[in-house]
Design a protein around this nucleic acid. Structure first.
Lengths: 218, 218, 218, 218
DNA sequence: TATGAATGAGACTTCATTCAT
DNA sequence: TATGAATGAAGTCTCATTCAT
């Protein structure tokens, strides 16, 4: 009776088929990242991922042998790129350790925590049980380097007499926790519980830096 | 015609069934909590839950109309019980605000963070997207009361001149974040990455209190 | 508007569900044998097998973990039962070797070649490439024992001077070939090409015996 | 707008393409014969066929409208060529009928049974159910002419008093069965069960002729 | 003519849910 | 109340076929 969807003709269909092969994996990874972060591995359907990337179900399997391989690729692709290199520049920092720490926190949010790639952190927290070897890899490639950098920053402060002596690894956990928390909150409860104070993330970052520096001052 | 299996002696069977029938829902909820926390909602099979509770798949549906209802019951059952009442006693605390804050952190870990019920926090972080109304309820029933208590504690310190003036809601987030983080870490990466410093949780709690109090001191 | 299928009420539905568990595997194996023989492994759909056994698709997987396992069960179940034991009694035969040979041929057709189990022979011929280990097992369990028995029969005839000396293993192949051929023909071309002379199989068996005995007479 | 990839030098590509375009169908048929014989129709993927023929999947569909058409072409192409013409010369044979029969068997193996084209026999046995009209055609074009020739040979022997009177069509089946069996065995169990006595096929042929002639002698 | 990226129907398999016992 | 066999919708993955280049 009524035409099912009169807007659909096959012109866009044709256009879609023509798109270049090299862009596909990236588009699929981007779509998969968003959906895996939003719904978890098990609750995400490959057809959704394909649809969000603008391709059909079958096309996804042209590039990734299985849903699991897609997941692993999502993690590996996004993890190695963003976080580590963004922070590595801080190694050459010259100046007060308190400024270095504050700079670390700012950069972390700007270059990672506030970007879609931060979804990885939530993803690994959720799926670590199902992908143990991937969790280990994530620890080695992402978590440990970040923590190591932070340990060097804190230790530098102590060595230069700017920070009081503390248990460095534990302090690092206290530095990291609110960052991770901000990400997780934004990606989960943020959707439905808008009254959390995440609308000005940098203000929270600054307060965190403030509290930490006071807490570390001799 | 011929009786299906008259030889089967169902006397011991009956004994087992009647053993503790009013305990069933509790056993099922306990099993479901553990599995939902470990694997998430979608990846947990109701048959597993039933098996862990020592009953058959069909029995589970006698007590819970669906997997979703089971999940909601798990959250509601565990949430209302543990956290809020455990902390409410602190409202009558008399003494230094720094001691009050430290006491809060200790109790939080002992009465909630270190118990199986803490899995709820991880669970809600993961599944909030799928159960928005449940997430709201969790916010109202669990998160907001805890935060409100903490706001009162911090405000008390400021009012009494023990703490410097700060943005109270944001500080509360900084207080809570490491607690949530400890729970999440223990329940996820803890499985596979044992070198995190979670073996002495109270030491981290004490350091956290220490840093916070220094950070809040005028 | 109009009821979808008014003839369907749920009485037979109920009846079906009630059927005894022990009968299921047998019914499924029987259905699977017929379909695998008719269409081969790849072209047979599990849903067809289930439908022919009067159950749903899911039920099949209650009893067989996968389509491959179903196939293996079909082969193993039917192979060991029928052929070998049927022929083993001939070992004690007393009398002329020509009668023994003739008796072998008759029994082979009556107890195996003419029954549904003979489909196994066609099945293994077709699927040996896909299930090599199963093919080996079939050789060891079914083919070799039969050939060994035939070798003993021919050798007995030679030893007693009733048969002329011949290459025994090769003669065994010549004895077996028409039998296998009769089975294969009946199950394949028989469907569509009715003018082959399979309507009186025993007449062909008798002629075969006749030709063989003449061919073996000194 | 912008050319997709102008940097790609497609000159050698062109050379390969034009190399032997009229040879394509033949190469595809050859590849398809081998794979259909090895794995059956359903389990053979057109991509495999194309790859074995050294072309892409799309090219295959330039020459054959569908997988089914490819299959039919394989059968028709190979069937009409090899067998019938090879045997037709025997019609003019002058000499003893036993020699004629022996010669038939030898030629059959040399010109058909031992060649890749013999795979057709296995193929038709397996797929006759799925391609009934093809099976009929095969009967008419291949099986019937061969059987007719054999019937003439046997009848000639009887008429000339060289063979005893027998049921001619049935004897023809007994003549053919070991031949078909040799082919089938070689192409299936031969892969995995090397202890069958197919390493000297002509010795089996000779023994078969020997047995037949003795069996037919008055 | 040849390609190979893209499609989507259809296969196998899982699992929440039902129901006769 | 408890069971567990049975169901079938829904998911992952395959592969014959199409089509723009």
């Amino acid at each position: 009776m009524q035409p099912a969807s009169p807007a659909l003709d096959d012109a866009p269909e044709r256009a879609r088929r023509t798109r270049r092969k090299e862009a596909r994996p990236g588009e699929l990874l981007e779509a998969a990242l968003a959906l895996f972060v939003e719904k978890g591995f098990a609750a995400t359907r490959v057809e959704e991922v394909a649809a969000r990337a603008g391709v059909s179900k079958g096309t996804l399997f042209l590039y990734f042998a299985s849903k699991e391989e897609l997941f692993k690729a999502v993690v590996r692709e996004n993890a190695s790129r963003h976080l580590t290199e963004a922070l590595r520049e801080l190694d050459g920092f010259a100046g007060a350790s308190s400024d270095l720490l504050r700079e670390f926190l700012r950069r972390w949010w700007l270059l990672y925590g506030g970007t879609p790639a931060a979804g990885l952190t939530k993803l690994m927290l959720i799926e670590a049980t199902h992908f143990p070897e991937l969790a280990h890899w994530f620890q080695d490639e992402v978590v440990q380097p970040s923590h190591a950098l932070l340990r060097r920053i804190v230790q530098r402060g102590i060595d230069r007499g700017e920070f009081r002596p503390v248990d460095v690894p534990r302090v690092v956990h206290l530095i990291v926790a609110p960052l991770v928390q901000m990400v997780t909150w934004r990606l989960t409860l943020g959707h439905c519980c808008p009254y959390t104070h995440e609308d000005q993330p940098m203000a929270l970052i600054e307060l965190h830096a403030d509290m930490l520096i006071r807490g570390l001052t001799p």
